[in-house]
């Protein structure tokens, strides 16, 4: 264990992409993020009724999880719920919507159409077979359409993933590192060098170039 890493508060964890998260701070941020998932008002077909509407309505009440603040603008939304079939004409628009969202952003694919194309797989010239062919998806909720309770389970799973810092995101993707103030005289590069040493000694693997390139 190096000198530098001991001086920092909390535990240092490397994350994919090569940035550094301070986990004491990280816990608070992840807690906040997981409890404040504002979905984008977006629904393409049947699932929108169950997942976006019925789950927000009085019986099921998405608000209990703090997720009733549906934002019509992708800039302000955290959660993209793909509720319904994605077809080839819509695919570029879905990608655009995802790109317009601000990091950190999470994606839940609900219903068989968004997972795999559902009933529209064979003999079909139009339906994309699963939204994950276009954008990365964090949580899949099966059903055709899923019940609101099923969707809530998906939300809870996403919350768990966020709290554990286990966002299923490929390295190199746009992600803003969260940094606490560094003690004087220590630079980020030093920490990274030390961390890499630490990791390599533990895991006995060489980290690829992506570990350094992805630093935000």
């Amino acid at each position: 264990m190096g000198l530098i890493t001991e001086k920092l508060p909390g535990i240092i964890e490397p994350v994919p992409g090569g940035s550094v998260l301070l986990s004491s701070m990280d816990a608070v941020i992840n807690w906040a993020r997981s409890n404040s998932l504002w979905p984008l008002t977006f629904g393409t077909s049947c699932c929108a009724i169950e997942v976006m509407m019925a789950s927000g309505a009085a019986r099921h009440d998405l608000a209990r999880f703090g997720a009733e603040v549906t934002r019509p603008s992708p800039r302000q939304a955290d959660l993209l719920v793909i509720a319904g079939t994605i077809v080839r004409k819509m695919a570029p628009r879905l990608k655009l919507l995802y790109e317009q969202m601000a990091e950190p952003r999470y994606v839940i694919a609900t219903g068989s159409c968004a997972i795999s194309g559902g009933p529209f797989i064979y003999n079909n010239y139009s339906t994309v077979r699963g939204a994950d062919e276009i954008i990365p998806v964090d949580v899949y909720v099966p059903g055709c359409p899923p019940r609101p309770e099923g969707f809530f389970y998906g939300i809870l799973q996403l919350q768990r993933l966020i709290r554990e810092g286990e966002s299923i995101r490929r390295p190199g993707e746009r992600r803003k590192p969260v940094l606490a103030a560094l003690p004087a005289g220590i630079t980020l590069d030093q920490i990274q060098a030390e961390l890499r040493e630490l990791l390599e000694s533990k895991a006995q693997v060489k980290l690829g170039a992506s570990a350094t390139a992805g630093r935000g």
Binding site: R88, I121, Y122, N123, N124, Y125, S126
Partner: peptide
């Protein structure tokens, strides 16, 4: 697409 002989590399046969 609705012509009977429409072929498309995207389509899957059941």
């Amino acid at each position: 697409p609705l012509r009977k002989d429409y072929k498309d590399e995207f389509m899957l046969e059941a």
